[in-house]
């Protein structure tokens, strides 16, 4: 990846709402080049989407988040991808990864209630033939999400003018 493309991606990770003009200023590319590169990155699947980091606890929406550990047993006809695709399809699943360690899949779920999460696990995940066990962890507090700290922000204690 060249430096401009890396800078383009860094800028979007920091703030996906950057305008093409500001992306151009930050990368040294022209606005047209920015648009063209974004189109390429989207087409090739590097840029998969642009979404907001939301602290739902500060809204009046109710909802819960949970992390599922899922263990599976594969057979000749079933690969990790097959199981994963089936689970990831659910709109409740926010993030899903195959991980190393004590379990196979780590699944981040967000739903309207604990009951909804429980039903998802018991009706959508556990019954799958490959799934051998699940553990559900309900999130109690979010401190940081995708690089964004959930605090009150500004703690810049530097002097405003220094040499």
């Amino acid at each position: 990846m060249d430096d401009e493309t890396r800078a383009l991606i860094d800028a979007l990770v920091a703030d996906a709402r950057e305008s093409p003009a500001d992306l151009a200023r930050q990368t040294g590319l022209s606005a047209e080049e920015v648009e063209a590169r974004l189109a390429d990155l989207e087409e090739s699947g590097v840029l998969r989407g642009y979404s907001a980091v939301v602290d739902w606890d500060r809204t009046d929406e109710t909802g819960v988040e949970a992390v599922l550990e899922v263990n599976v047993e594969l057979d000749r006809e079933t690969a990790y991808d097959d199981v994963a695709r089936r689970i990831a399809e659910s709109p409740l699943v926010d993030t899903m990864r195959l991980v190393s360690g004590d379990y196979d899949f780590e699944v981040y779920v967000r739903a309207g209630s604990m009951g909804a999460v429980s039903r998802f696990v018991s009706e959508e995940v556990a019954p799958l033939p490959a799934v051998t066990s699940t553990v559900t962890h309900f999130a109690m507090e979010t401190y940081k999400e995708r690089g964004v700290l959930f605090d009150d922000g500004d703690d810049d204690d530097r002097l405003s003018v220094t040499p």
Binding site: R6, A7, D10, A11, A14, D22, A24, R25, Q26, T27, G28
Partner: peptide, 14 residues
């Protein structure tokens, strides 16, 4: 360094 570089380009352009 990459972040400074983006800000540098932005500020200079502006």
């Amino acid at each position: 360094r990459r972040e400074y570089d983006r800000r540098r380009r932005y500020l200079t352009a502006r």
